[in-house]
Design a protein around this nucleic acid. Structure first.
Length: 485
RNA sequence: GGCCACGUGGCGGAGUGGUUACGCAACGGUCUGCAAAACCGUGUACUCCGGUUCAAUUCCGGACGUGGCCUCCA
């Protein structure tokens, strides 16, 4: 088995070879915690979570280091701090804003079945030189100035893009084209319009740190250069994030890191997930189709119901990570049905509920190792579900092993399905009324009073309850019910 | 305007130079008092126009279309 990953830098799938198999290193750009994370933010978190699990499977749990940062220095955070905590000193208000949203983010992605990364550094802790000597932004900027890759002008420290001959390699942009586009703001103090800010001065009411260039705050990109170096070194294996980060964020990270460290690459593989649309349209607050992870989990804003985390996770994984994904109610319903179907397939087999009880099947390992090819995985799971229903225990175990590897919450499926179907009938009085009616109908059927039994069925149907007549293992009639979908 | 990705059956979504994705829906059947559910089975699709080839949905060129980036948005 060899792992192959698509590398944005070379635009091709390449066999993955770690720098050090005893410590495989991956960095993914995390959220800016000015607000609750939206469902689009969840995509890279889920995708790279599966890659993390795959790497752990291949190289061993103790031999993979996954870093996902939390950006807590940002102008939007400042705005929100002023809005939400007008009485507090700014720095304290900022801490409050980011604490709440960062905690919410952790809870949300945990509900989506994502493992915590090995390290989750916060940008504010890496601005100034640190007692532990880990890389920091101010030192990085000093190095860039010393090496002639950055200059001070107009109260800012700027990266000199012309000092780097192959600037733009990741995004395929050339500096001349940037000029031709003419959309880049013309700042007189910049040597080149493409030059970007490493450090900018803060006014009185903005958060700031004392630096050799005055009290100020870092530019957008430098934090990732600092935090990746701090935990993963100057050169590491995989750097991931959303497609939109290719330019300018990752391009500029590369420029900063490579020039400061004097290396020819920053990371060996650059991976980017595609964007998410909602019902065919770009998600935006103005269109009213903007949904946070938390809203999907806990409110009925999307499709009129709450969605279990594993349904959201499965829906996300059903589309290849590099393709655009259309986030629709029907796609979530389908994911829910898939889980219901798999649960039906597994329940007769009395499998262990302990995650990890069943091995990851080779077929799945091979599919996932081919640039995270989940569609093959899903197809395979359906096939095993079919076999499992015919009594094939080894297929059931493979299905369980796959669900556990992807962390689709198998041990909780029964409960999840119950809660999901009962969404309009959570109160016990109503449930026992259903049971009474069903029992009455059983009696009527036994008496062959089909007029009465059909009347009861209609009565339940009017309440949105669908009956399912079947037989148990001994061939005796059994009636179950569920909420009409 | 520049750069990039993509265009597959009713829908979603893989993949391939000549052979079955898969799921949902639909249709047919079995079962059922009748339904529903469940189970079994059915589908021959690949934007358009050229080119290469014995053969293209798959390779090349063009057209049209969609989406993304080019303003700290995953």
């Amino acid at each position: 088995m060899e792992l192959r990953l698509y590398d944005t830098m070379t635009k091709e799938k390449r066999v993955f070879t770690p720098i050090d198999p005893s410590n495989v290193r991956m960095y993914v750009c995390g959220p800016t915690v000015y607000d609750f994370a939206h469902i689009g933010n969840a995509r890279p978190v889920i995708v790279f979570d599966v890659l993390f699990r795959l790497l752990r499977h291949i190289y061993g749990d103790k031999h993979v280091t996954y870093v996902r940062n939390i950006t807590d220095v940002d102008d939007k955070i400042n705005d929100r701090a002023v809005r939400d905590f007008p009485g507090l000193p700014l720095n304290e208000a900022i801490r409050k804003v980011t604490e709440t949203t960062a905690n919410q983010f952790q809870a949300d992605v945990a509900a989506l079945g994502c493992l915590p990364p090995t390290h989750q550094p916060r940008a504010t802790e890496f601005v100034l030189p640190r007692p532990d000597g880990k890389a920091d932004m101010v030192t990085l900027i000093k190095q860039l100035i010393a090496r002639g890759n950055a200059y001070e002008a107009g109260g800012e420290v700027l990266f000199d893009t012309q000092s780097m001959p192959d600037y733009g390699a990741l995004s395929g942009r050339k500096l001349e084209e940037q000029k031709a586009g003419a959309r880049v703001a013309v700042d007189v103090h910049k040597k080149n319009p493409a030059d970007f800010v490493l450090w900018k001065l803060s006014s009185e009411n903005e958060p700031g740190w004392d630096s050799p260039w005055g009290r100020g705050r870092p530019g957008w990109h430098i934090e990732c250069s600092a935090m990746s170096a701090a935990y993963l070194g100057d050169v590491f294996d995989i750097h991931g994030g959303g497609l939109d980060l290719i330019f300018p964020h990752h391009e500029n990270e590369i420029a900063q890191s490579r020039c400061a460290h004097g290396t020819s690459v920053m990371a060996n593989y650059w991976m980017h997930n595609g964007f998410l649309q909602v019902e065919g349209e770009k998600m935006s607050k103005s269109l009213g189709n903007f949904f946070t992870i938390n809203e999907l989990l806990t409110t009925d804003r999307f499709g009129g119901r709450k969605w279990p985390g594993e349904v959201l996770r499965l829906a996300m994984l059903k589309t290849h990570y590099r393709s655009p994904i259309d986030w629709t109610v029907s796609s979530l319903e389908e994911a829910f049905q898939n889980i219901g179907n798999w649960n039906d397939a597994l329940s007769p087999h009395a499998l262990s509920n302990m995650p990890g009880s069943y091995a990851l099947p080779d077929e799945i390992l091979e599919a996932v190792a081919d640039d995270l090819g989940f569609s093959k995985v899903i197809a395979q799971m359906h096939q095993w579900a079919k076999l499992s229903k015919t009594g094939d225990a080894s297929a059931a175990k493979k299905l369980a092993g796959t669900a556990d590897f992807l962390d689709l919450g198998r041990s909780g499926w029964d409960k999840t399905l119950q809660e999901f179907l009962f969404k309009t009938a959570t109160d016990n009085a109503l449930n026992s009324k259903f049971d009474e009616l069903i029992a009455a109908r059983e009696d009527a059927r036994a008496r062959k009073d089909f007029k009465e039994s059909d009347r009861i069925r209609d009565e339940l149907a009017a309440m949105g309850v669908v009956l399912k007549d079947g037989r148990d293992a001994d061939g005796r009639p059994v009636t179950t019910w569920e909420i009409a979908r």
